[in-house]
Amino acid sequence: MSALLSVEHVGVRFGGLVAIADLHFDVNPGEIVSLIGPNGAGKTTAFNVMTGFLRPSQGEVRFRGTSLAGLPPHEITRLGLARTFQRTSVFPDDTVFDNVMIGLHRQGSLMSRAPLLDTLLGRGGANERRLRERAAALLERVGLAGRSNEKAGSLAYGEQRLVGVALALATEPAMLLLDEPVSGMNASETRVFVRLIRQIRDSGVTLLLVEHDMPLVMDVSDRIVVLNYGRLIAEGPPAAIRADPAVIEAYLGQGSAARHAGAGAREAEHA
């Protein structure tokens, strides 16, 4: 099976700081892979490289066999690689519904050869209607249908994360990168989100997940890639990662023994 996404010896330097040293891994079609590591390990930086927001100092990323080197973000999205953001995930001043309408930008252009001209001549009506239907369906899918008319910026943080996912899904990706999607969600919202992740995968979308919620990561991942200080320190199925001494060391070494124990406890609760 050939990889859908290959990160090939990518390195990123910010001045003297090595954010990513030499990252090398693949994601295969249909997989759910998690990219984990302590704060500052370089996970978001890796996402930024994959989606064209950052040029790597070395190496390259390939998606469906084509190199993404030098491509701007919007073109990478058009190739079928979408992402969510760790910090801001919405267009805050628009309604949730209009957020998704903005997200359907690409779909709109596929419906018409000269959308701008259609607009000026008032010929876009049918396409607009179809886009609205799709937006409503997407909101239904992520469970935000009841929030359609609310301003996205006024939603609870966890719900904003869901808007972000709806926006990414609106681009009809073959692969989705999720950057800490459940931060800000409570336990029950997280459980619902796990179902959504599985459902997205079952609809044919490959997933790469960055997440600090270890129970969730262990639960949904087919494979886990572990980063520490910009270096890949382990890679394998959840069971192997859980037992990997280098991984435990990385998390404990950061002085997060308590968090580790806490995560274990929550995991037990989760099961």
């Binding site: 989606t51 973000p73 999205t77 995930s89 919405v90 805050p92 309408m101 903005i102 997200g103 926006l167």
Partner: peptide, 19 residues
């Protein structure tokens, strides 16, 4: 909508395919 998206959150707008 593309203009509004860019104004409100440029990175997010680019990530949904807006040039």
């Amino acid at each position: 909508r593309a203009m509004r998206g860019l104004k409100e959150n440029e990175s997010l707008a680019m990530s949904v395919g807006i040039n």
